[in-house]
């Protein structure tokens, strides 16, 4: 049986990798490639957010009765990260290398802290409350539409 923690942590690593490739391409001013990879990163991350916001968080909230707790905080951080995505896209369009790298460093910091909180607390908590239904929840998560 797969756990939410393992599956979602693996997805974090996947997003990190695409993020790093985009950043490296911007650093070497390879703009066309960077823009493609950045879009892939944004899509992967938005898909991850949707899995959480549309399936995982509601599931957690309905099983624990906590709607204003950790999931609310995670949603708030998704908003913060989405704002950085738009700023990064603008920096890419105007080929502003330093601007992009400053934003990507900022995103990196919030994203890693966010991931750490999810992997060390929220996902294990969710695994605990979901128990044997994990496979079913994961299946529904994989089916979410990408909103980006």
């Amino acid at each position: 049986m797969s756990t939410i923690t393992d599956t979602m942590a693996r997805d974090h690593r996947r997003c990190d990798e695409i993020f790093s490739t985009a950043e490296e391409q911007v650093a070497s001013a390879d703009w066309d490639a960077a823009s493609d990879v950045f879009n892939r990163f944004r899509q992967a991350t938005e898909h991850h957010f949707s899995m959480e916001e549309d399936v995982l968080f509601p599931e957690f909230e309905s099983r624990t009765g906590q709607t204003m707790g950790p999931t609310q905080m995670m949603r708030m951080e998704h908003i913060q990260m989405r704002q950085l995505f738009s700023d990064m896209e603008r920096a890419l369009t105007s080929r502003d290398r330093d601007g992009y790298l400053g934003l990507s460093e900022t995103l990196m910091m919030i994203m890693q802290q966010h991931n750490m909180k999810e992997e060390q607390m929220l996902y294990p908590m969710t695994d605990q409350v979901i128990g044997t239904d994990a496979d079913d929840v994961l299946k529904r998560m994989e089916g979410v539409e990408n909103v980006a």
Binding site: M76, I79, Q80, Q83, D87, D98, G99, L101, G102, L103, E105, T106, M109, I110
Partner: peptide, 30 residues
């Protein structure tokens, strides 16, 4: 790492609370 990140973090939280999108929050390297 800590000083630029904290500065950004506190300001962006404030920006979202006040919904003042017209004031840009500088990123870490600024």
């Amino acid at each position: 790492k800590i000083v630029p990140f904290l500065s950004w973090f506190h300001l962006q939280k404030r920006q979202l609370t006040l919904m003042c999108m017209s004031v840009p929050v500088p990123h870490m390297r600024q």
